[in-house]
């Protein structure tokens, strides 16, 4: 564990709290992509299946439980509690285009051709692109509530912070995980446009609006 990874994980935690807070205070999941949230549940379940056979640390254990539980809870909020506030007609990204390639890639590029190992790899590839339905929705509507942009910024910061973590681990532990690194770089790259608008507009006190 190093500072970058810890800050990354805390940022990830924060993003989830911000999202739940947004849904509960506005009593609405408007502007949130159900598809992206469903992909995150898939990612966490596929990756954290190792809860059953690999012990890493108490920290790791509780974080995994939290990520699975909170992501399922968010789906519940969107699907049942605040269902009428979700508009499926603007959440139309075809997730098959993300899940399909993630399955194929994980079968080809993995460290070991074993079921749980392939699930782990699949989760890494899927997570890299899971934000796309959300970004696509943002693009379509052209605007977002400020709180939603804070959620996205915290989520993007989490992956961005993992990059210095990998550099640090390379030098201090001689650990290199090319699958995680390549997917992580792609994932962080997807946020660049968003970050640009976030820093130049939202953090200057303006509303998040994309040019028409």
């Amino acid at each position: 564990m190093n500072l970058f990874r810890l800050l990354g994980d805390l940022s990830h935690l924060a993003s989830i709290f911000i999202l739940i807070h947004k849904i509960q205070t506005t009593r609405s999941c408007r502007g949130i992509s159900f598809q992206t949230q469903a992909l995150y549940v898939t990612v966490f379940v596929a990756r954290y299946i190792d809860l059953f056979f690999r012990w890493i640390s108490l920290y790791n254990f509780f974080m995994k439980i939290f990520f699975i539980a909170s992501s399922v809870y968010i789906l519940y909020l969107m699907k049942y509690r605040y269902r009428p506030t979700h508009d499926p007609s603007i959440d139309t990204f075809k997730v098959e285009y993300l899940v399909g390639p993630a399955v194929v890639l994980s079968l080809i590029f993995n460290y070991k051709f074993e079921f749980t190992e392939i699930l782990w790899t699949f989760s890494i590839y899927l997570e890299a692109v899971a934000i796309l339905p959300q970004l696509f929705m943002l693009q379509r509507t052209g605007e977002a509530e400020t709180i939603t942009t804070h959620y996205l910024a915290a989520l993007g910061a989490y992956r961005a912070l993992y990059i210095p973590n990998w550099i640090y681990r390379y030098f201090t532990e001689d650990v290199v995980d090319p699958i995680a690194i390549v997917a992580g770089l792609v994932q962080t790259g997807l946020y660049l446009d968003f970050f640009y608008v976030y820093f130049t507009k939202v953090l200057q006190g303006q509303k998040f609006e994309l040019p028409a």
């Binding site: 990874r5 690999r54 995994k64 460290y111 650990v175």
Partner: peptide, 10 residues
């Protein structure tokens, strides 16, 4: 070695 690849990140 099971833990060779680590997977100790979240």
């Amino acid at each position: 070695d099971d833990d060779y690849y680590g997977h100790d990140e979240l």
